[in-house]
Structures are given as C-alpha cells and as structure tokens.
C-alpha cells in the first residue's frame, strides 16, 4: 500500500480481529456440557428409547395429537373472535357495553384455567338442562340434558376458548389503540361507516401489533391443552397417561408426548414468522428507507403543474 491517496484508489479494510479468549473458553464449556448431556440421555437405559420409538406413531398417540390440534385451533379461533368482540365493546362509548366486557376479562383472567375446565365439565351440577325459550322462567322450545351436551371435548373447548378470549381481548385492544387516531379521521372523512373504518383501516393496521402476541398465545395454547387431561379430554397427554397406566412406561410416554409437543410448537413458530412478515406490508425499516432515498430514481420530480398559473 502506498501512503499517498490518489483519487479513485480503493482502500479495503482487511483488519485482524482481536482475540477474545474468554468467549472461546465459554463456547468450549457450553459445547462440552451439550455433549455430556446428549451422552447421558442416549446411554441411559431407563429411558427405553426402543419404547419411545415404538409409540411415536402409535394409533392412540396420533389420535390424541389430532385432538390436541383440534382443541388448539378451535379454541384460538373462538378465543380470537371473542377477543375482538370484547375489545370493540371495551372501546365503545356505552358504559354498559364497556362494563360487560370489563367483567368478562376480569372474571376469566382472575380465576385459574384448571378451575374453569373442571367447572365446565361439571356444569350439569348447576344447570341440569339447557333450553331455548324465553328467559326468566318463560316457556321452553327445546331442551337438552347437560350431561349429554357436555362431553370432555366440549367442556375443554368451552374452558379454553372463553379463557383465551379474555386474554385476546387485551391484546386486540392494545392493537386497536396503537393505530394513529388520524387514520380513523381520514377514513371517516371519506364517508366510511364505523364498521368499515374498523374492518378496512383500523384492524388491518392493528394486526401488526396483534399478530406477534397472538402467535405466542397459539404456541402457548398447544401446551395448555394438556391441562384438559384433568377432565380426560382425550388429547395427547391424556392418551399418553392412559397408555403408561397400562404399561408403566411413564417416562417413555411423557417423552413421546413431549416430542410431539416440540414438533407442533416448532411448526407453529415457523408459521408465526411468515404471518408476521405478511403483516409488515407497508412498513419499511430504516435500511430500506435509506436505500429508497439514495436510489437512482428521482426522489423528487418536478412539480406536476403543466401550465404556469
């Protein structure tokens, strides 16, 4: 390299990185720990890897897996709908609607899910029959026995969805509030109705704020469904428990269930990543903003007026 700087001469940076012995040491310790952990798990004879492999694709396990997926998807969908409804009510001008929504989130966030699940399963003790008719003791048109309607699956769905709705309400409300009030004004100035403003302008923008925590709720829900085992909900954990009560392979069956939970949550995490990217539309990060400003396209065009006024 010559010391004088002639115009147009490139000066590449090929610097030597500083040595960081502490970091190397930490990495070596972490690697050693992982190898030791894997070794103890693999050679441990009490884990019964042959049993785990044999039961991974067992028909009963796959059936339980399917129930877990159904419970998760359905309770999230119903929970999201309830959450949007509760959030819109919460933001209403009417105090009764606001109060109803507040009571809902207060009660269902304030009591344990486990209690709610057992309660829904035993609702027949409080309301032996469900009927369609006039309220406050009026005539009934159709009537069902509670014990016939409330199966473990419907009880699980009720408990999970209603509980989820209370949490989703807060997430949706935060999302709606994050939208600039000017957006609402611009939409109203175009003559949009309240419903159109919400559907076309506010909710799509709130989504950007709503999606990441909703993804977390979904992943959390995949695992929360295991609570349904207290009412014998026939999902993954219940099935695994039933099997180990017969063959006493407790740890192996829990490993089978855990492997499937990990598969589900991993798939959900990847899905979350793509959904988030989809709703980033129109939001430009600083790097691309700089690229836009420095792009060879004219950033400023001449004023559009054709004739001088």
């Amino acid at each position: 390299m010559t010391p004088e700087r002639a115009a147009g001469v490139e000066l590449p940076i090929e610097a030597v990185r500083p040595v960081r012995p502490g970091r190397w040491l930490g990495a070596a310790v972490a690697l050693l720990f992982l190898v030791w952990l894997a070794y103890t798990i693999i050679v441990n004879e009490n884990l019964h890897w042959d049993v785990i492999v044999a039961y991974l694709a067992d028909g009963r396990i796959l059936g339980g897996l399917w129930v877990t997926i159904q419970l998760t998807v359905l309770s999230m969908a119903i929970g999201l709908a309830l959450g949007v409804l509760a959030a819109v009510m919460q933001l209403s001008d009417n105090p009764v609607l606001r109060g109803t929504s507040a009571l809902y989130t207060w009660f269902f966030r304030g009591t344990p899910l486990l209690v709610q699940l057992i309660f829904w399963f035993n609702i027949g003790l409080v309301f032996p029959t469900f009927a369609v008719g006039l309220p406050f003791g009026g005539p009934k048109l159709i009537e069902w026995q509670a014990n016939a309607v409330i199966t473990p699956f419907t009880a699980a769905l009720l408990g999970l969805a209603i509980n989820e709705g209370a949490y989703m309400a807060e997430i949706v409300r935060a999302g709606i509030r994050s939208v600039d009030p000017g957006q609402r004004e611009a939409a109203e100035s175009l003559g949009m109705s309240h419903r159109q403003v919400l559907r076309r302008v506010v909710l799509p923008q709130a989504m950007r704020v709503i999606i990441p925590p909703t993804g977390n709720q979904f992943i959390s829900m995949l695992k929360t469904t295991s609570m349904v085992s207290v009412i014998a909900g026939a999902e993954l954990l219940t099935v695994a428990q039933r099997i180990y009560l017969g063959n006493f392979e407790v740890i192996a069956m829990l490993m089978v269930a855990s492997i499937w939970y990990l598969v589900l949550t991993t798939i959900a995490s990847v899905g979350q990543h793509f959904v988030e990217k989809r709703f980033e539309r129109g939001h430009v990060r600083l790097s691309s903003r700089v690229r836009r400003n420095l792009s060879p396209l004219p950033a400023k065009e001449p004023p559009p007026s054709k004739e001088p006024s």
Binding site: G182, Q183, E185, A186, A187, S189, P204, H283
Partner: peptide, 13 residues
C-alpha cells in the same frame, strides 16, 4: 367533503 390533513394520514398498509 374532501379533507386533507397536515400529516397526510395515508393508509400505510
């Protein structure tokens, strides 16, 4: 009635 705002308020999405 058309309205144009100081801060534009275009729909960003």
């Amino acid at each position: 009635i058309g309205m144009v705002f100081q801060r534009f308020h275009l729909f960003p999405h």
